[in-house]
Design a binder for these strands. Sequence first.
DNA 1: CTGAAAGCGCTTACAG
DNA 2: CTGAAAGCGCTTACAG
Lengths: 343, 343
Amino acid sequence: MKKITIKDIAKAMGYSIGTISKALSNSHEISPVTKVEIQKFANEHGYQSNQYAKLLRKGRTNIIGMIVPSIGNPFFSQILEGIEREMSETTYNLIIMQSADDPKLELKHLEMLSKKGADAVVIAATGNHLSLRYLQRLKDEGTPIVLIDRTNYAINTYKIGIDNFKVVYQGISQLVNRGKRKILFISNLSPGTSMERRRGYIQCLRDFDIAYNSDYLLSIATNSGRMEVLEQLKNKLIHLVNSSSPPEAIFTASDQLTYLTLEALHAIGIAVPDHLALIGFANFQYTNIFQPSLSSIVQPSHEIGSQAFAILSKILDSSDNEILAAYQNIELQASILTRKSSE
Amino acid sequence: MKKITIKDIAKAMGYSIGTISKALSNSHEISPVTKVEIQKFANEHGYQSNQYAKLLRKGRTNIIGMIVPSIGNPFFSQILEGIEREMSETTYNLIIMQSADDPKLELKHLEMLSKKGADAVVIAATGNHLSLRYLQRLKDEGTPIVLIDRTNYAINTYKIGIDNFKVVYQGISQLVNRGKRKILFISNLSPGTSMERRRGYIQCLRDFDIAYNSDYLLSIATNSGRMEVLEQLKNKLIHLVNSSSPPEAIFTASDQLTYLTLEALHAIGIAVPDHLALIGFANFQYTNIFQPSLSSIVQPSHEIGSQAFAILSKILDSSDNEILAAYQNIELQASILTRKSSE
DNA sequence: CTGAAAGCGCTTACAG
DNA sequence: CTGAAAGCGCTTACAG
């Protein structure tokens, strides 16, 4: 059952290679009768065009490169789901790579994608300046770039994320409305999102006339191992809880930090919400079976993925690979599931 | 900053195209001096070979196709992580597709992979006979196939999973040793794993001299929506709990069923483990923050991925794409994390 | 409406 | 040790 080519069809049917090619791509140059005849023959013999010959000829690869910190993180795996569902039956190919939030690895992956001739790149970037410069260069060379999740970077391109300021503001408001005034804010170091999230926190406190306390602003590097991050959190939390002014609530500004903070609180024996309320970013589908059921900020992860693909396919499908009128910064709506952990 | 080709180098250096090609692939035909000179020039000018021209010439695509039920399921996303880490800096390309455990979609994806000319396929198959037949055909045509997770199918190829019988036997033993004799076993319909898991359950009961009760053997189709599965579970559980012989423990034989069963138990107000103990398959990294902390069967998901790639790269890298001596059925070790839910 | 020919970027027998 | 030439499977001006 060897693969059949245009040449085979041409020989079998007594047409030239060019005619077969044109008939199969439905060219108007070919007479309807011949076209039908050829297409029928091709179908019956299971002809499938060789993508690589096509792409070589057209100078394209149809590869969309994607870099995320970790596929195992449900937030990113859901984004991936969203892309895959749209893409699977197209001729595009997705290549996925994990940066582990390591700038060096990220840069290596970008170089690899360039080497593989990726026609577009989707990335949740670490924010490392070398990577950003590389992205800028790719963009200048004509490769469309879509920044997802972490969008607050000074590069003028397509961006898809959420309104970080707003959803954090809402989350903090909830805590305040439940009588919490001493709110610990824990975020990671990603400049792509943490600025806006922190701004939401600070502005909300200000609007509620709550004094700002720098001890309540915690930044944790999450690209070290899980155990290390957990230890750090435990130490910080023990310290704060035993301080003269212990926090009454925690807001965690990333999925991983939410899970690890909850784990740390369990480990050091602090009851949630009795002792300390908690609300945080979390996209795992089953946060309602957490101890306690978790008040979660949920992002439209699937939609982030599907929109990224929508934008790219629009650009790549346009004959001259033209960049759309204006770069868009799409801010989708995140939602808050209020549950026991913040009661 | 246009891409530079072999032709460009040939023109610039005054060598023929063939010589450049051979020098870059380190052929012994070329004199060491010339080779160094050419390689240096290529490096300095950022030459990157066009994979597609290469593959077209060699009749290969270097595409590895992968089909899993759902990328969002942490178990499968971890397998993906395992593959990606090994593969990212190679010239192989992974194409991922989701079957949603839908046989029709699975078959469509397989056809797509064949159309794209995948050089190999990695699949957690539904077990649908049309798909299995298609896989068999691909295999017969020379495409290496690796079955992951669901390995109990009558197709003679590479298989990577766990010793399902053994780990279930151990899990059930734990429950029995804690005094439970009425154990409800909930599994999905996948023939690739559920047979062996069920066998472990039944054999364990037998060895402990516990009467087998068919009411305690529950099979749930998990490819309908999440809410639907949840409803089913709630109904079944309410019925059983109120029966004349209510179960004392539950063993859930898939990740999704574990989460949903716990959710169902919460919803209908059954306390775990006080009222009913629970132990189940679960690969989410943070099952210790569940309510209660979950006794989990954890599979070596990353290793399943990395081994799949290891096998394939070995086959595909061998010049004649030869199938290795014998097909292997690799059974990795799963582990049991015993925690509060089964106390 | 159909065909002959060039070429995408590469590799590899075959000569010399 | 180096080069000329054919060919992987396709598309597309250009002729006729």
